[in-house]
């Protein structure tokens, strides 16, 4: 695409889309663009939306978008779904819930597969967020599925993490509490039109009260996303958390943390890419066969590959 950079700054959706594709595939073009436009970033507020499957994260995001575009905000969404480790394929299903608003000029939605990346984010998420930031988004929502401690990378990228739960999860709240309690800056109990919501709210509050050390006590917000109820309050709480972060100085801390992560990610990615780009598929298979035949061991194999890659 011509003028990719110019179009990107203007928030052109196709330009955003293409740049994110570069990012997600580690093409150098993405890096080049970010290098040039880095200065422009830093203005978007990043909100992580996470929680167990099916609790209504996408529906909630859809409603957040709606309420925020109504007051003139620009919104970018990154929705991450797991990639099958067996086939490398994935069904990216979050967009369905946000289809109506995706045509709004101030909204951009992108689905991404984790593509083997651990921690709940996809490979290119850091870059994609940076790109949306450059494109002038006021808010960036990142939806990830998270049920346990293995999927907490969202904390490292977001300014505010909204942990979404729903009634009927019942005992699960207990079960997953270890994984979730430290993650959420705000807790949402969605599907409050259903029975059992109050019980979940009470349980959550009890658990949150146990942790007295924190100076930010995460609020619990009752929401019925499908009916657009409780969304304004949630937006208030997000703003409230932002104010807290800024006043307490944590905001800057978090952002520095994120930069560190972004740098480390970039190094990791580059290393992996460098190594694997140099390895020929055939070579790998034949060496692998030697490992299988016990002619060499896996560690020698790895050392060899590493050495080859850097020669």
């Amino acid at each position: 695409m011509e003028n990719l950079e110019e179009l990107l700054i203007k928030g052109d959706k196709r330009a955003i889309a293409r740049t994110i594709t570069y990012a997600e595939n580690y093409e150098d073009k993405a890096k080049e663009i970010i290098k040039k436009l880095y200065e422009r970033s830093g203005n978007a507020y990043i909100v992580g939306i996470t929680g167990p499957p099916g609790v209504g994260k996408s529906t909630l995001t859809d409603k957040l978008i709606k309420n925020l575009v109504d007051v003139g905000k620009k919104i970018g969404v990154i929705a991450v779904d797991p990639t099958s480790p067996f086939t490398g394929g994935s069904i990216l299903g979050d967009r369905i819930r946000m289809q109506d608003l995706s045509q709004h000029p101030n909204v951009y939605i992108r689905s991404m597969g984790t593509r083997g990346h651990l921690g709940g984010l996809s490979k290119g998420t850091y870059m994609a967020a940076r790109i949306l930031d450059i494109a002038g988004m006021d808010y960036i929502f990142i939806e990830t599925v998270g049920v346990g401690q293995s999927e907490i990378d969202i904390v490292k990228i977001a300014d505010t993490v909204v942990m979404v739960l729903a009634p009927g999860l019942g005992d699960d709240v207990q079960a997953i509490k270890a994984g979730i309690m430290e993650i959420g800056d705000i807790f949402v109990v969605n599907k409050c039109d259903k029975e059992g919501a109050d019980k979940t709210v009470v349980e959550l509050n009890m658990m949150l009260d146990l942790d007295e050390k924190k100076d930010w006590r995460p609020p619990v917000v009752k929401v019925a996303a499908q009916e657009n109820k409780g969304i304004d309050e949630l937006i208030d709480k997000i703003d409230g958390h932002k104010s807290y972060l800024i006043e307490s100085g944590t905001f800057q801390e978090r952002r520095i943390e994120r930069l560190k992560m972004e740098i480390i990610e970039s190094i990791k990615n580059r290393l992996m890419k460098d190594i694997f780009d140099k390895i020929q598929e055939k070579e790998f298979s034949s060496m692998l066969q030697q490992v299988i035949d016990k002619k060499i061991d896996p560690y020698t194999f790895a050392d060899e590959l590493y050495k080859d890659a850097f020669n």
Binding site: T59, I91, G93, I96, R97, Q226, E227
Partner: peptide, 10 residues
């Protein structure tokens, strides 16, 4: 009444 949102599980 509003409109039904299809539940899609693939």
């Amino acid at each position: 009444f509003g409109e039904y949102q299809q539940q899609i599980i693939l």
